[in-house]
Design a protein around this nucleic acid. Sequence first.
DNA 1: CGAGACTTTGACCGTAGTCAATTTATGTGG
DNA 2: CCACATAAATTGACTACGGTCAAAGTCTCG
Lengths: 249, 249
Amino acid sequence: MSASRAATNEARCASEALSDPDECQPLDLKRIQGLWRRVERYTAGVTVRAEGRSKRLIVVSGWAAEMRILPDGRRQIFGCGLPGDVIDLSNSGNLGNRAFVALTRLEVVDAEVMIRSDGVDGAQTANAIERALRRREDALYEQIVRIGRLNAKERILNLLLDLHDRLSRVGLVKEGAFRVPITQEMFADSLGLSLVHINRTLQQLRREGLLDLRGGAVTLRKNQRLTALACYQPASAEWDAVRSVRSAH
Amino acid sequence: MSASRAATNEARCASEALSDPDECQPLDLKRIQGLWRRVERYTAGVTVRAEGRSKRLIVVSGWAAEMRILPDGRRQIFGCGLPGDVIDLSNSGNLGNRAFVALTRLEVVDAEVMIRSDGVDGAQTANAIERALRRREDALYEQIVRIGRLNAKERILNLLLDLHDRLSRVGLVKEGAFRVPITQEMFADSLGLSLVHINRTLQQLRREGLLDLRGGAVTLRKNQRLTALACYQPASAEWDAVRSVRSAH
DNA sequence: CGAGACTTTGACCGTAGTCAATTTATGTGG
DNA sequence: CCACATAAATTGACTACGGTCAAAGTCTCG
C-alpha cells in the first residue's frame, strides 16, 4: 500500500469519527486530503509534544495513549486516542503531569489548521471538535467507574466494548474484529490491574467464549451475557442517588 | 447566625476560590452579595437539576458530589464540588448518566448570571470560571490515578491532601483542620474501596499519627512521610513514558 | 428513651498481586 | 532462511490486600 493511498484511508477515518451519527455532517474529505502536508507523524513510543502549534490535535490514524508515571515507576493510562479523537495537550494544570505517547505509527493534524482550512464549514468543524472534546471527558468518567467499581472481568469487557464502539464509528471494525495494538501490560496499567491478572482473566474470558483474541485482533461475542457482564450500559444515576446520601452531616 | 450574615461569609468563599493565587483578581464581593436573590439552595441529599437556567453553577457554600449508581446498586463518586468549584450539568453525553447531589446544605449561583452581573469584569469572571472548569477536569485525572494505582492508605491520604489544599484556598482550613461532611461509606464509594476497609485504614492512619479525625473535622500531620505516602506530588510523566511503551505493534 | 444512621470490630474468604521461570512471538543481522 | 536477542504472553506457587457477612457499639436527634 502506497503512502498516498494510506493517507486517503486514514483521512476517511478521521472524517467519520468527527461526525456524529445523528445530527452532523461528515467533514469534507477533499479538505482533509488538502491538509496532507500538515500531517504530523510519530513513531511508536514517542511522546507527542506541544511545540510550535496549537495544543489540540486530531488523530488521523494510529493509536495514542495518555498516561502518567508515578515517581516509583507505577504507571496509569488514562485513555486511548483513536482516529477521530482529540488530543488536548493543554495539560498544564497545576496538578502533576500527563503525556500522550504514540502506541503505533501515529498521524495527527492540528485542530486549528483543520478549522481554518475548512472555509465555509469552519464552524461545523469546530463543532465537531467540541463534541470530540466532550467525548474525551466522558471517557474519563467511564474510566473512573471501570477502575473504581468493576472487577477484573468487567473492566476488561467494558474497555473492549468501548474500544469496539469507538473503532466501529470510524470503520475500523471488520466482521466484528478489530486490532488492538496494546500489550497486556498496557491493559494492566489502564485498568488498574497487574499484568499477570490481565493475562489470566483474558484466558478465562476466552474459555467462556466471550471473546476471541488472536494476532492482535479481538472479536467480541456480543450477546446479552457479555454486555451484562461488562456493565456497559450505565444506568441512570439519579434513581437512588438520593436514597444513599441521606443526611450528610 | 442570621441568614444574611451567612450569605456574606459564603460569598467570600466563592470569591476566593475563583481567584487563582498567581495572576487573577478576586471577584468583587459586593457583586456577589448583589446576587443574593439569585442563590439557589439545596438540602443534603437532593439532586441538583439543570432546569430553567444555564447548566453551569458556582458553589457558594456547602459540598456536592458527582456520582453514578450502577444498575446493581454499586455507586461511584467522581468528585466533590467545594465552594468556588463549578458544577457542570451538561452531562448529556452519550455514555451513561451522572448526577450532582448535595452533601450538605448547598448554595449555588448560575455561572451565566454571575458573569452578566459582573459588568466591567465580566471577562475576568468568565476566565475564572474557565479555570475552575479546567481544575475540575484535572481532578478527574487525579481521581483515576488514585483508584487505579494507589493502595488504600495512599488513596485516603491523597484524597485528604487534595481536599485540604482546595479548602485551604477558600479559607476553610483553620489551624490545619477542616470539616469533611463525608461518611465513610462515601469515602469508600469515592476511592473504590469497601466501607469496612476504609474504616480500618483510617484507624491505622490515626494510630500512625498521620492524621487526626474527630467530630467530622480532619487534621493532617503534614510532613514528608505523609506526602510521600500519599503520592501527592505527581511526578513528571514524560521521563520514562517512552521506555515503557517500546514497540507497540 | 428509642430509632436510624454511622462507626467499629471479628472471623473468614477471595480477588488480585508478587515472584520467578518458561514458552511463544517478533525482529534483526548474518 | 536461520540464529540469536528481545519483547510478550503464559504458567505455577504463594502471598496479601481488600471484600463480605454479621454483630455490636456510638452518636444524633426527635
